[in-house]
Write a protein that binds this DNA or RNA. Structure first.
Lengths: 330, 330
DNA sequence: ATTCGTTGTGGTATCGATTTCAATGGAATT
DNA sequence: AATTCCATTGAAATCGATACCACAACGAAT
């Protein structure tokens, strides 16, 4: 039996409506407001958000559905989203899909039951194909991976450009035989691969690439295998932080020294890349800004639902470190 | 205007009560159940969780309040908590306090408004002192940092023991002049310091220690300063992953080579510790298990509220790597 | 002096589900 | 054949807030 609004009303000697108006900054005389606020303090009243949501039809909740919060990219994004959400008086519900379309469907359904105000979502390729914000009943902002163009709002990195920047950098280091490893579940891997191929073909160079499941073990063993083949590349680009770590471990295992025997670069300026040996060259994504932008985009969409879907493309930043500078120890 | 339970009832030709019973696995004849399920599918009905929560007085929501989700320790714990929660049909609300007592108070208040079923909480020392689950109105399980004994349920590492294990290891490597750096906001730092001191005093050795704010920059500069003083230790223990990284960066800056000029060990088996040079020696916390245990404890508490508060103490595991083995390059 | 707005307040309906209680019908028991 | 019992079902109350509407009081405008 907790305290409810009518208890506060009784203590303050006003009606429940008036208490509600005080809570919601409605029109109340200064004197009554003071009485009510005193009564709230005296009773220790806490509004029941379930009741408020039901009556007001505003959940003040946004969903954040990612593949795995342990991926530092999503960790950083989620922190940005939460900061922005709480500042706007909203709650965040976080779900991990593990790149599983079944779980995605389940959590989308949950989002509907929660009547979320909006959703920030990093879908698998499969789900991105068929996702339709109108059917869902709330606006969606895709992050990291955009679906078919013009259908949903999205905040993404310029993946092709980013790959090209990395390739150009390796080319400028004198490499000609550059390999790439890419994740096989998201559109991100596809786009980064495209940029990779474009940059190399422009020079008439081959663009050997492999697509790998996004797990450390899978990456490590697949890359190790590649590195012992006779045609192993002299430089490698990894399409995300996890694959980059896998590549490094694989090189270690194969007794291939970075950068002496293999130049190595990748995406995501994760903490470890800065402290390892002479550092890993990475293409940094503006992780916090991606989250912040996604929230801002969602808010904008809520204000003007009729706007055409927008896609905000952010640029990465090349951070050159020792792993791509021949003649430096790692 | 969304579909509600009475629409489903009309389509199925039954009463809303019956639909509700189908949803809640109540007593319904097989034939009616089939009709209702068909109607649910036909209408695309999604229950409104706000309404359900209000009426049933069960929020099916648990709060998870940590200092910063970007700390890999909390990231891993949160993933475990979320896995367990969703498996039990519960939602998780995640909040970041940044070790700020003011934010903690605000989020505790939010938890009350959400009428959470329970809370998993890593409090600052300040808040831990005065926290009272009874006043809050829902059970609390503390993680990482326990408050005053016998007051709240808690899942923690055996911090003193863990420190002693690290000290013993360094002693066995021949070190006698061992320093320690500890976080200054949580009880964890205090306990780890105590174990550190105990292990050294037992041998009649000094136990020089510093308490540092838990940020990478603060750690780096404080430790760099220490390392250029004349009495700098020959080995250093860092009380968490962040401080350990700070210590490593500080050593680099001061041109002090690990492990040749300084042995370095610390808490938290974060990903990077395994791939850096010849590896960092760490005391691994069972991160996923901590989260899982906290959830299990919360469930147990909900079943039997009258049980006396319990404190579950888990043990860490020493992972020896190159950073504490003299004569190995990093 | 009358009308009109404006401001502040209270009463009541309502949000969308679950829960309680009563009613029904058929099988089982005496 | 009458009675009891169980399994299903429906009607209505309820969870705790906000939204909507009506109305009182008062000053300004005609």
């Amino acid at each position: 039996m907790t305290i409810q609004i009518k208890d506060v009303a009784r203590v303050a000697g006003v009606s429940p409506s008036t208490v509600s108006r005080v809570l919601g900054n409605g029109p109340v005389s200064a004197e009554v407001r003071k009485k009510v606020e005193a009564a709230i303090k005296a009773t220790g009243y806490r509004p029941n958000l379930a009741a408020r949501r039901l009556r007001s039809q505003h959940s003040q909740t946004i969903g954040l559905v990612v593949s795995d919060i342990r991926n530092p990219f999503f960790t950083a994004v989620s922190r940005a989203v939460e900061d922005a959400a709480y500042k706007a008086g909203m709650r965040v519900i976080l779900c991990n899909t593990d790149e599983d379309a079944g779980k995605e469907a389940m959590y989308l359904s949950l989002m509907q039951e929660e009547r979320v105000t909006g959703l920030i979502f990093a879908p698998t390729r499969e789900t991105a194909e068929t996702l339709d914000s109108n059917k869902l009943g709330f606006p969606v902002v895709l992050i990291d991976r955009a679906g078919p163009p013009g259908r949903n709002d999205a905040v993404v990195l310029d993946n092709a450009q980013a790959s090209e920047i990395l390739v150009e950098h390796l080319l400028s280091q004198g490499c000609r035989h550059i390999g790439g490893v890419f994740g096989n579940t998201s559109t991100t891997g596809v786009e980064r691969h495209a940029g990779f191929v474009a940059a190399l073909e422009r020079r008439g160079l081959p663009a050997p690439a492999r697509f790998i499941a996004p797990s450390l073990d899978a990456a490590e063993s697949a890359i190790r295998q590649w590195l012992v083949e006779p045609d192993r590349p002299e430089a490698l680009i990894a399409s995300n932080g996890l694959l980059l770590m896998g590549a490094l471990k694989a090189a270690r295992q194969a007794k291939i020294e970075v950068p002496r025997d293999l130049l190595l670069a990748g995406f995501d300026n994760d903490d470890w890349t800065d402290i390892i040996g002479s550092g890993m060259t990475v293409l940094e994504q503006p992780v916090y800004e991606i989250g912040r932008t996604a929230m801002a985009m969602l808010m904008a969409r809520l204000e003007s639902p009729e706007l055409l879907p927008r896609k905000i493309v952010l640029s990465g930043r090349l951070v050159v470190r020792g792993s791509t500078i021949a003649g430096v120890a790692t």
